[in-house]
C-alpha cells in the first residue's frame, strides 16, 4: 500500500491507475472487479480526507493556543488593573468635585443650547423673508 504523502501528491490519472492496480491485486474482472475498484477508490479518498483533516488540525492548533493566550492575557490585564484608589477621604471634598463635574456638564450643555439657538435664528431669518 502507498503511503499518504504519495497518494496526496498524485494527480487524478495516477490515482485512478493506482486504484486499478490495487484492484488488480485481487480480481479485476466482472462485478467483483468493479467492486474492488470502487473499494480501492474509496480507500484512497478516505486516506486523502484523513490527510486534509490532519493538515487542518495542524493549522488549528497554533490558532487555538494563540487565542487561549490572548484570553488569559486579557483577563490577567483586567485583573491587574484593579480598582483605583479613592481621590478623597472626606465626603464633602468628594462632593465638591462631583459638583464641579456637574457644573462642567451644565456649561457644556449651555454651550450646546446656545449653538442650537444660533442655528434656529439663522434658519428663522429666511423663513421670515419668505413669509413676508
Amino acid at each position: 500500500m502507498k503511503d499518504i504523502e504519495k497518494i496526496v501528491g498524485m494527480d487524478p490519472g495516477e490515482l485512478e491507475a493506482e486504484a486499478l492496480k490495487a484492484a488488480g491485486e485481487k480480481d479485476c474482472t466482472g462485478k467483483a472487479g468493479a467492486e474492488g475498484l470502487i473499494d480501492a477508490l474509496g480507500r484512497a479518498e478516505a486516506l486523502m480526507t484523513e490527510e486534509t483533516e490532519t493538515v487542518r488540525r495542524r493549522w488549528l492548533a497554533p490558532i487555538a493556543v494563540a487565542a487561549g493566550l490572548a484570553l488569559v492575557a486579557g483577563i490577567g490585564l483586567r485583573w491587574q488593573q484593579g480598582a483605583p484608589k479613592d481621590s478623597f477621604t472626606d465626603p464633602e471634598q468628594a462632593y465638591a468635585q462631583v459638583e464641579m463635574a456637574f457644573s462642567k456638564i451644565g456649561d457644556g450643555l449651555k454651550r450646546g443650547s446656545e449653538a442650537m439657538e444660533k442655528t434656529a435664528e439663522i434658519i428663522q431669518k429666511p423663513i421670515e423673508i419668505i413669509n413676508n
Partner: peptide, 9 residues
C-alpha cells in the same frame, strides 16, 4: 474566545 479576550482588554 479571541473576541472575548479582546473585549476584556
Amino acid at each position: 474566545a479571541a473576541v472575548l479576550s479582546l473585549s476584556a482588554i
